[in-house]
Amino acid sequence: MFINKSILTTLILSVFITAGCVKEDLSETGGNVYENFDLLWNTINDNYCYLEYKNLNWDSIGNEYSSQLHEGMTDKDFFTVCSNMLNELKDGHVWIYSDFNTSSYGDWYLDYPQNFNSTIVEREYLGTDAIWVTGLKSQKIRNVGYLRCPSFMNLFSFSEIDEAVSQLGDIEGLIIDIRNNTGGSLIHAQLLASAFCKVKTKYGYLRFKEGKGDNYSDWFPQYLEPKSKTVFDGKIVVLTNRMCYSAANEFTNAIRSLDNVTIIGDKTGGGGGMPISSELYNGWQIGYSTNPMFDIEKNHTESGIEPDIYLNMDRDDEYNDIDNIIEYSIDYLKSD
């Protein structure tokens, strides 16, 4: 058997040639407005988790906005078309970012009363002698504990939650105020809720998107796991408003599963879909919800969580530096 040298050479060369590189795509050129629009539309069509739940006809939305495209339109005009199309999803977890502008849907809180005045809370309720442990502030108000958690972006540990509450001494009840908390880390939201549970408690479900279209994982139950001790096991009131979003929404969903918790204020803003990022050929960044979260009844939490007791801020009280929601909660906790 004879193998010619040229055959061997061809064999080696063919390996080199086939290795080549990753197939060329539109990222080489940045794509034109039509190509970038198609990528945006397809990314949402394939991966966004609430098209069915929100009963959106994404095809017709795509047609409506693609008709606004034209050759030679400026980047800013194209950005406006893209952001207007994304706003149809009515989702604060959907955004588009370029170096000259960022757009994200905001009507989930802008269309509703604020029901929170940080100046009044800081000056009239927390004061200068509040206990401040990393991202948490606490104060004892008329023998009731008040714990303010403005964000889940701030990192805190279980022991810091414990410090913030235990330093208040004996209290008749605890108010956890998460108004205007627009979210952050789900882990910290779950940690804060877990600090008040005594036994492992199922509070909802999570599903992961596993492919394009209607392709989801099983329903994965979500639990609150008790920590080494329960920080406080008396009556708890959680204050919410429309600006409670994302991780704060999930915190509300989690902590309301505890028997000793009452939610007071306004419906939360929602944001029940865990978002992930992507980008367009031209380098613009986009984000969208992809993994939906559910309550214990397997209902979506995307549209927000209803409070047990609806209560809006009273304008007259606010004018007089009184937060009537906190006042009501104190009375609620002190009553039998």
Partner: peptide, 9 residues
């Protein structure tokens, strides 16, 4: 991303 237009700032 060789064509990232955001690098033009």
């Amino acid at each position: 991303n060789g064509n990232d237009q955001n690098t033009n700032i």
